[in-house]
């Protein structure tokens, strides 16, 4: 999160109006010249919304397919880890510590004699839970505040902008070390709360900018001229046209939140044993890196693939929603 924060905002600037200009105007213009101007636009068939166009693009994108499958698999094993492993992550046998791969234990054993395969599978649950819940919290808080600030402007907007500036100045890992070290609860909630606390300003900035872009469109003015209320303007006209960048950034952020949870757990302030987390396992395995590299390799690899999957998914969604950027 610390280094990736500003970059997505840059990269998707202008996604608010995703693809509206990219039309077969020439073709339609030719049809228009027919008497009465009643010529049908485009081929006959189902009407195409921008979302369905995006979905059609995504289905044809192999990168999207691969990483979407990875994510589906991760979600599946976090909900039902026992579907692919019969062991328990907490059943360890010190006598087998650091043993390598063998039948029934494909990833070998870690320094405590726990089965690395089982622990890696169960670790997905923590990562996915933290990632998904933190992203939901960040997205709801950030986009509601950002959208309201962008729509109404004025003093509230200035105050919110200054507050987000303050939050951007907080170093994330240092903040985590300080804030989380005083918390004794060993659940995912303090970590999620911390991520939401530091993460919402990024989303609120994206949402604010996106709402300001969408707000300037004449269709918003047209609706206003018809007497539409502010809530109708926001919900019917602005939100649907401003949500794409928020979805993209939130998806990418989800990956970075998973990495952050692992980092905090590695540093001992996130989740602590007996919780199961890739960060804890990486931390525990690093002293034995010479004797048992497999104990480090599997949770690290799982973490890297997971983070990558969400970032690539966000990228693919962004491309599909805004063909102009390609």
């Amino acid at each position: 999160m610390p280094d990736g924060r500003h970059e997505p905002e840059q990269a998707i600037a202008g996604t608010g109006m995703g693809g509206t200009m990219d039309l077969g105007v020439d073709e339609a213009e030719a049809l228009e010249k027919r008497p009465g101007g009643g010529g049908g636009p485009g081929p006959e068939g189902k009407p195409r919304s921008l979302w369905s166009d995006a979905w059609r693009d995504l289905r044809r994108n192999p990168v999207f397919i691969v990483f979407a499958l990875v994510i589906l698999f991760l979600v599946f094993i976090s909900l039902w880890p026992s579907a692919i492993t019969s062991g328990s992550p907490l059943t360890c046998d010190l006598s087998r510590a650091q043993e390598g791969s063998r039948s029934g234990h494909p990833f070998g054993f870690d320094g405590q004699g726990c089965d690395v395969y089982t622990r890696t599978v169960y670790g997905a649950r923590t990562s996915v839970a933290v990632g998904v819940l933190a992203t939901l919290g960040v997205a709801v808080l950030g986009s509601v505040l950002g959208a309201l600030a962008g729509f109404f402007g004025g003093v509230g907007d200035s105050v919110l902008s200054r507050i987000t500036d303050v939050f951007f100045a907080i170093p994330v890992v240092l903040g985590g070390l300080v804030l989380l070290s005083v918390i004794t609860s060993n659940t995912v909630w303090p970590v999620i709360g911390f991520i939401v606390l530091l993460g919402w300003p990024q989303l609120s900035r994206i949402a604010r900018g996106s709402v300001i872009t969408a707000k300037q469109n004449d269709y918003v003015q047209a609706a206003r001229a018809l007497g539409a209320s502010n809530s109708r303007l926001l919900l019917r006209h602005i939100a649907p046209n401003a949500v794409a960048p928020v979805i993209v950034v939130a998806t990418i952020a989800l990956g970075t939140y998973i990495a952050l949870e692992a980092t905090l757990s590695y540093l001992g302030v996130g989740l602590k044993p007996p919780s199961v987390s890739w960060g804890i396992d990486i931390s525990a395995a690093s002293p034995y890196i010479r004797n048992a590299p497999h104990a480090l390799l599997w949770p690290s690899g799982a973490l890297a693939i997971t983070v990558l999957a969400f970032i690539m998914l966000g990228d693919a969604v962004r491309d599909a929603l805004d063909p102009k950027l390609r």
Binding site: L23, V25, A28, E29, L31, E32, G42, R48, L50
Partner: peptide, 11 residues
């Protein structure tokens, strides 16, 4: 039931 992007500027 079509969307605006299926129409030309004049339409």
């Amino acid at each position: 039931n079509r969307f605006p992007h299926e129409f030309s500027g004049g339409q």
